[in-house]
Design a protein around this nucleic acid. Structure first.
Length: 606
DNA sequence: TTAGGGTTAG
């Protein structure tokens, strides 16, 4: 058989011999390849293989490719395998599986594409795939942006060769299809057809929902799994915990923590990390820190999760302490850690510390700041009211600013009363990024603040011209293990009349206590009385009223929002926390607000 | 040689 040459050959030293040298050389080659993890070692082995003429020995080649852990090593190994002078009649399915697996496991989309290329090479050489081939191949498909399209072709191939019913193939099919939003229905079809006796099948489908942002569906499926009495393992728990983190489902996250203890599920490092992350993102930062402290082993992910959690809760100085402890423990921070540390400084108004840490990325750790780190710095200056400095920072930064950075600046201008500057930046932003609804909403806010209703009307027209709609505000709460969602002005809830009456009652009590609604938050040119009404029905107030009705006095109320808290809801919630003596913990789009005794943990700084 | 997961600016 004749294989076309692979596309990316490294230049290889000239061959001194192509003849096999017998068993002794084969054994020494295998010994050399044992534990051959690093690239220099692999290249050394590669040279030895060529020298001894063993580069076409399938046993040696399979070993060679399977030891290749880094991308460069995979390249080096395959270039040797498909060397023009390699003796191709020795190629077999096992060898190709090894090559496909190495490429499927490499973290780079091009490598996944390569895996598929080698499969086509295999078929062109009239080699038949075996049952191991498809799980590798489908995993490669899952990593591609066009997973659904290519994956279904591979699926058809698995059917043709009679391996589609294998349980490993079925589970990887679920994973592959659910890796793209368009394939979620296909994944569910495969899932529904399966016996579902293994936790692998369940976690593949549950994770698919989480990846598509359907965490509620993920939790529902986990409950079905409980009913069907399949024992969850650590991977299932990790997946469901990530759904909890997304939803802010604290009760469920805590329940999973105790389930792990009760069922003696192995507390792997990843599982512990997932629990720390979920507890922090669900608002139980003290629980997260306590669990983190008890962990027998900690990775960079554990440290970063805890720093990030503290940052979200405005506990900047504690976050910085943990960061220092991490360095003392000999764990060097990476770029993700720095995003968390800089966020911590930003949310706690620690400008000097933030600048120092930003500089230390390069000077102490040799890390090149990315656009996200520049974004953190713009946010750091902006929140602290240093608008000029933020603008200057953007002007001189060595990377092209992206829309996120421009939006951060616009928002700073609005909060700190620099309306003209904000307006001009916002207009540029709309030119560059005309399809983003938040740019329109922000500019519309500026016009509302300056009472330029005609301009606001133009914005509304521009939005409808582009077919853009404002994302509706949504607040959710967890009660007895159920998640209840509220959307502004929503009347679909069964008890909506009671809820609306409660909102009215709260409003009356608040006014007696001195609350004056902030009506500039209403983006309509209606009279003041109607504006107050519109504010009443913000989703956050509906959620609070619902929990007031449903829980005993003094029970803390936890709310998860999809947008940032508006100024009026922020003020009203402060009053509610005092008047009703309730702790109210709100997770907004990017941080936590803990309202207690009339104050918020963000110190009105968000 | 086989499957499922895992911290990221606003």
């Amino acid at each position: 058989m004749a294989f076309p040459s692979a596309r990316r050959f490294k230049s290889l030293p000239p061959l001194t011999s192509t003849a096999g040298r017998g068993q002794a050389d084969e054994r020494s080659c295998l010994a050399l390849l044992q534990g051959c993890e690093s690239l220099p070692k692999l290249l050394q082995a590669q040279a030895f293989l060529l020298k001894s003429g063993l580069q076409a020995n399938p046993l040696v080649l399979a070993k060679f490719t399977s030891t290749a852990s880094s991308l460069d090593a995979v390249d080096a190994a395959t270039s040797l395998l498909f060397h023009p002078r390699a003796t191709t009649h020795l190629y077999d399915d096992v060898l190709f599986n090894t090559v496909i697996r190495s490429h499927a496991n490499a973290h780079r989309p091009e490598s996944k594409q390569e895996a598929i290329f080698y499969y086509s090479l295999m078929l062109r050489g009239n080699l038949h795939p075996n049952k191991f081939t498809f799980p590798f191949l489908l995993k490669a498909c899952a990593g591609l942006p066009s997973a659904h399209g290519i994956g279904s072709q591979v699926h058809a191939s698995a059917v043709k060769f009679g391996f589609a019913d294998d349980s490993y193939v079925q589970n990887t099919l679920i994973h592959m299809y659910s890796s793209s939003t368009t394939g979620l229905d296909c994944a569910r079809k495969v899932f529904d057809r399966n016996p579902k006796s293994s936790p692998v099948t369940w976690s593949a489908m549950i994770a698919g929902y989480v990846r598509s942002g359907l965490s509620n569906e993920a939790v529902t499926l986990f409950r079905e799994m409980q009913v069907s009495r399949v024992r969850a393992d650590d991977v299932v728990i990790i997946t469901v915990l990530s759904a909890c983190a997304d939803l802010g489902a604290l009760e469920l996250a805590r329940w999973l923590g105790s389930y792990v203890e009760r069922e003696r599920i192995p507390k792997s490092l990843s599982l512990c990390n997932a629990l720390v992350d979920a507890l922090a993102k669900c608002g139980d930062i003290d629980g997260a820190v306590a669990f983190f402290k008890r962990m027998p082993e900690r990775s960079i992910v554990s440290w970063t999760s805890v720093i990030d959690g503290l940052a979200m809760h405005s506990r900047g100085s504690e976050a910085v302490c943990v960061f220092e402890a991490m360095k003392d423990a000999g764990v060097p921070p990476d770029d993700v850690t720095f995003i968390s540390v800089l966020t911590a400084c930003s949310h706690a108004g620690m400008v000097d510390e933030g600048c120092r840490y930003f500089d230390s990325m390069r000077s102490e750790f040799g890390l090149q700041p990315k656009i996200e780190h520049y974004g953190c710095m713009v946010d750091l200056f902006s929140r602290a009211g240093m608008v000029e400095r933020a603008v200057e920072f953007v002007r001189t930064m060595p990377i092209e600013p992206n829309p996120v950075i421009w939006r951060t600046l616009v928002s700073a201008c609005r909060i700190h009363g620099r309306l003209e500057l904000g307006e001009s930046i916002n207009k540029q932003l709309l030119d560059k990024d005309p399809m983003n609804s938040s740019s329109y909403v922000m500019l519309s806010n500026v016009y509302a603040l300056t009472r330029r209703w005609d301009k606001k009307w133009e914005i509304r027209k521009a939005m409808s011209k582009h077919g853009i709609r404002k994302v509706p505000g949504c607040s959710s709460v967890e009660l007895d293990g159920e998640i209840y969602e509220f959307i502004a002005g929503d009347t679909s809830h069964l008890q909506y009349k009671e809820i609306y009456e409660m909102v009215e009652e709260i409003g009356r009590k608040l006014k007696k206590a001195g609350y004056v609604p902030i009506s500039s938050e209403v983006l309509l040119d209606i009279d003041e009385g109607d504006k107050e009404d519109a504010l009443h029905w913000h989703s956050e107030k509906l959620a609070i009223a619902f929990m007031m009705l449903k829980t005993p006095p003094k029970t803390p109320i936890r709310i998860v929002k999809n947008l940032r808290v508006c100024a009026d809801c922020h003020l009203a919630t402060k009053f509610i926390s005092k008047v009703y003596d309730r702790e109210i913990i709100v997770r907004d789009r990017n941080r936590f607000h803990c309202f207690k005794d009339g104050f918020c943990s963000c110190k009105d700084f968000w």
